[in-house]
Amino acid sequence: MRLFKLLGISIVVLGIFVFLLSLMFPSTAVVERTGVIMAPIDSVYAQVNNLKAWEKWNPWSRPDTTARLVYAAQSAGTGAYYSWEGQLNSGKVTIIDSEPDKGVHYTMDIKNMPPVKAGFEMKPSADGKGTAVFWHMEIKLGLAPWWKLRGFLADRIYGPVMNNGLDRLDSLCVHR
């Protein structure tokens, strides 16, 4: 009986320690990637602004291959959205702001996960031959230690996937 009591106290103390340690981690995770796409800004904007085009380049457009995608009547511009429901998860992506000369901003709400605010900033590249793209994501993590740990690793988890998306966007825009 004494062993179980000692084990229970150890688990509670460890849990409190992990929670207090997690308070030192930020409650927001930010992941950012940049790239230059050798295509005019209107070509890049057309791909980023139209949610139906995301399937061709965005690594998160179909998070579950069994997912059923449902698009709004409007699939491009401010207010456009799509949702999915699959075996692994469900969620919704909504464009909250879209301007051809500035970029596209969106929210991503995935069941049982913190909400994500993200966007693409676009401007002509320094040499004027392409489009400089800045892709950023901000995830509000809250106080839960498991989300804060994931936030601590967010750049390592999501950064390479974002790089892959930018590479696919580049090849798509160049070959249009």
Rank of each mutant, 00 (worst) to 15 (best):
I37N: 15
C173M: 08
I139E: 01
Y81H: 12
T34Q: 09
D109I: 08
K140F: 11
V133A: 00
E99G: 05
M24C: 05
V48M: 09
V31F: 06
N50G: 04
L6Y: 15
D167E: 13
A80R: 05
L141S: 06
P124G: 03
M137Y: 01
N50M: 06
S22Q: 10
K117G: 01
P59I: 14
A118C: 08
N164G: 08
T94I: 00
I139A: 00
S43F: 12
R150M: 14
S125W: 01
V161F: 01
P160Q: 06
E32L: 04
K123D: 15
S61I: 10
G77T: 03
S10E: 07
L169F: 07
V30Q: 04
M38I: 14
W135T: 09
D101Q: 13
V70E: 05
V12A: 13
M1Q: 06
L153V: 04
G165L: 14
L21N: 13
K5P: 00
V116G: 00
Q47G: 00
Y81S: 08
E138I: 01
M1G: 12
L149W: 06
K56M: 07
I157Q: 04
Q87W: 08
A29I: 02
V174I: 14
K123N: 14
Y71L: 04
P40H: 09
V13R: 06
K117C: 00
V116S: 00
G151W: 00
N58C: 01
L21K: 15
I96R: 11
D97H: 09
S27D: 06
T34L: 03
Y81W: 11
S98T: 00
K148A: 02
G159T: 08
T66E: 07
W60M: 11
T28K: 07
R156M: 14
T34V: 03
V93A: 09
L143D: 10
K102A: 02
S61P: 12
A118M: 09
Y158D: 03
W146T: 02
K117A: 08
K148E: 05
P145C: 12
V48P: 07
D170F: 10
G142F: 06
L51V: 13
A80H: 04
T94P: 01
D127W: 00
F25L: 12
K148M: 05
V18H: 01
E121H: 15
V70M: 07
G79H: 12
P100H: 15
L20W: 15
W147R: 02
A118S: 03
S61Y: 11
V12S: 13
A67G: 03
D64G: 02
Q74I: 00
I157C: 02
K129Y: 06
